[in-house]
Simulated assay, not measured.
Amino acid sequence: MTSSAESFSANALATLLDEANHAPWESVRAALALIDGQPHPRVGWLTSHLTATKRDYWTQIAAATNTPAPDDAAGLTRLMAWEVDATRALTAVALQTRLTHSDESMTVSEVLRLNARHTVWHAGQIAALANPTRLA
Rank of each mutant, 00 (worst) to 15 (best):
28 V>K: 07
9 S>R: 10
45 W>N: 07
34 L>R: 11
39 P>F: 04
118 H>C: 09
29 R>V: 06
13 L>C: 09
90 L>C: 01
2 T>M: 09
6 E>R: 04
56 D>N: 15
28 V>Q: 04
93 V>P: 08
104 E>H: 05
80 M>L: 14
89 A>N: 02
36 D>S: 13
5 A>W: 07
72 D>N: 08
32 L>G: 08
3 S>Q: 12
47 T>D: 05
13 L>I: 08
90 L>S: 00
79 L>K: 07
3 S>E: 13
24 P>A: 09
55 R>M: 05
108 V>K: 01
92 A>V: 05
102 S>R: 06
54 K>P: 07
61 I>D: 00
61 I>E: 00
32 L>V: 09
18 D>Y: 06
108 V>F: 02
60 Q>N: 14
34 L>K: 03
39 P>S: 04
84 V>E: 02
37 G>L: 08
40 H>Q: 10
112 L>W: 01
102 S>D: 14
59 T>D: 06
80 M>R: 10
47 T>Q: 11
65 T>N: 03
102 S>W: 07
69 A>P: 08
65 T>Y: 02
10 A>I: 07
50 L>I: 10
3 S>W: 01
60 Q>F: 13
2 T>C: 12
31 A>Y: 06
102 S>A: 12
41 P>W: 13
20 A>T: 03
41 P>D: 08
33 A>F: 00
104 E>R: 11
22 H>M: 12
14 A>I: 05
36 D>C: 14
82 W>A: 01
81 A>F: 01
62 A>Q: 06
52 A>T: 14
50 L>C: 11
18 D>N: 12
27 S>L: 06
104 E>L: 08
68 P>F: 14
117 R>P: 04
40 H>P: 02
14 A>F: 02
110 E>R: 14
104 E>A: 10
11 N>T: 14
8 F>S: 15
1 M>H: 10
69 A>Y: 15
2 T>H: 08
111 V>K: 04
66 N>K: 11
109 S>N: 10
79 L>V: 11
72 D>F: 13
14 A>M: 08
118 H>S: 08
21 N>W: 02
5 A>R: 15
